[in-house]
Design a protein around this nucleic acid. Sequence first.
DNA 1: GCACCAAGTAAACGAGCGTTCAGGGGCTTC
DNA 2: GAAGCCCCTGAACGCTCGTTTACTTGGTGC
Lengths: 215, 215
Amino acid sequence: MTKRKPVAPAAPEREQRPPVEAIRAAAFKQFAERGYPVVTVRDIMKACGLTQGALYNHFKSKDELLHDIIASTQAELERLCLQAVAGAGDDPRAKLAAFVRVYVVRHCRLRVEALVANREIGWLDAEHVADIRRSRRAIRDILVGILARGVERGVFNPPQLDGRRDLKAVSMALLDQCTHVSMWYLPGGRLGEEQMAGLYAEMALRSVGAKTQTT
Amino acid sequence: MTKRKPVAPAAPEREQRPPVEAIRAAAFKQFAERGYPVVTVRDIMKACGLTQGALYNHFKSKDELLHDIIASTQAELERLCLQAVAGAGDDPRAKLAAFVRVYVVRHCRLRVEALVANREIGWLDAEHVADIRRSRRAIRDILVGILARGVERGVFNPPQLDGRRDLKAVSMALLDQCTHVSMWYLPGGRLGEEQMAGLYAEMALRSVGAKTQTT
DNA sequence: GCACCAAGTAAACGAGCGTTCAGGGGCTTC
DNA sequence: GAAGCCCCTGAACGCTCGTTTACTTGGTGC
């Protein structure tokens, strides 16, 4: 993981990981462990066996590298959520469960990536950050949509206060809960990813007052 | 917590905020807005109308300043939680509701402080961070205790998987949910602090399968 | 009046940052 | 074998950081 091939790769038959991918991976790991502002360009490149200057053959700046990493993670998450919901039939309860399961499994499995995407977003400049926030809102709105449909059909009964419901607040609460699994979940513990997903799906269904069904 | 009044307070009639408090407040604000590593000592001191060097009359280092801030916030939170639970009678449902209400109200009202305490902890060095983590575990264990008592008495029925319960995981899920209100709640919105607290308490009770009662 | 001392200033320190750039190897293409 | 292109190196740039230092100030106790 330190020095790789300082001068010449000598082009062996088996493909080495291209440098741009090595940089992405090294940056991911270090941002996750220590945080964007304290990880230096020198750190990242040393981990790839390159020198600092080489970064700028692949990325315009350190900021662009971070955005590249976060944006790809976020886009993949959005894609997975949409896919899970679309493939879960018509019942809002099934849709909600599928959404939560996918979301939690993803945040257990790709803890590092999730952690970076959620913690380091603040270091991006304005235009880069807007891009990410749009995707987050989109994911929240998927959830709001599911809840709204469930309320319409009478299978959900989320808490109301003063006779008013706030599906956005409920959605944010559920998402916060699921997102931050990545902050403390450790693989190999008592509960596996799938069990965590099951636990969270059950809690979500209960929270929104889902009428029991033969799931 | 550092130097207070070593010889004489000089006691003028109208109290000015002592500089050490002004520094704390300015640091709080700026850490919250921009994050510990990018806020400079110069920034903090300029906000107090002082020069950089003056910081070191009150704190040993920038790191110690952060720890001072986080530790006092965290200690106050722990105290509030204990007090809320102790004053909520004997029913685990009432205890859980009281805990969540206090926790959520606190995280709505002191968003800035909560945000710093939760986001910037990673910049502390090892011994400082251990101190904070102990307090967090203590808070989690209050919650675990409430749930355990509730299960014993048959008033809670948290989700189980493969016949096993994991009260720690459930507690972490509830805490994550409540903690991160501070990341998006804005005062003056549709829901006030008390209403948020009510919403979250209701969701928590539902999540753990509380038997309905005449609250 | 005078020594004392906390608390402030202003300048300087060395280190480390992100970024740039001239130079130079090893490909591929003629 | 010459040309052109990637991609790298290694030194340097200008800047800012946290911290230290020497010095000044103003209130207090004897």
